[in-house]
Amino acid sequence: MLSIKNLRVSINNKEILKGVNLEVRPGEVHAIMGPNGTGKSTLASVISGREIFTVDEGEILYKGKNLLEMPVEDRASEGIFLGFQYPVEIPGVSITNFMRTAVNEQRKYHGLDPMPANEFLAKMEEKKKMLEIHAKLANRSVNEGFSGGEKKKNEIFQMAMLEPSLAILDETDSGLDIDALKIVANGVNKLRRPDNAFVVITHYQRLLEYIVPDIVHVLFDGRIVRSGGKELAIELEEKGYEWIKAELV
């Protein structure tokens, strides 16, 4: 589904990703772990198409298509979803309106008519129920005045509405209390299907107690230095990132 080969990325002439390789197949959950500042969020941004980064080398294929040639919104319509580490506020725009616009623009991309209003509202209700999200959230402006936990839950809600085939969650667990964490993890688990995949970026092993990954990668200094099963996350938690650093030197 997603195939990244020798990806080298820089910002303002500073190299951040120094040759990343990654293969994600349908049905898989990948975890990318690593200390701060090693390029985890950069990887998520480049996959979703943020323009502030320069791709110096390498390729990203997604469902066989060259992702790097596609505009951000087309990537989204092709099924790539990014759960933001810091979701932005859009004052005055209700989540309902925001999601309806997103759903219908994606449908338009696929040559479909807009979703009828009643069908859309029913879908919102269904997803809210599934994620155990408080009904009030939907009528508020996008992320405006939300707590950290509410913002992250809102990201998961949007993911549920858009039904992506590849969801990248960028440190969705940061700043969450245990209850919010469970809601987020629960959402991901409920949305897991054989035909979609998740890339969960996290600093801590904690989230992976609730979302069990198939493959864990350690990103360090712009490279994936180690990949393994879920045990790798536990090992990392016990020994800390110093362990990896020490091994690499």
């Binding site: 979703s48 198409g49 943020r50 505009p71 951000v72 919104e73 990537r75 989204a76 319509s77 979803f81 990014l82 933001f84 979701p87 932005v88 859009i90 925001f98 999601m99 616009t101 997103a102 623009e105 994606q106 991309y109 949007q158 858009l162």
Partner: peptide, 10 residues
């Protein structure tokens, strides 16, 4: 970018 990432054109 946030809007674009949800599939919404600029």
């Amino acid at each position: 970018f946030y809007c674009n990432q949800r599939g919404i054109s600029t």
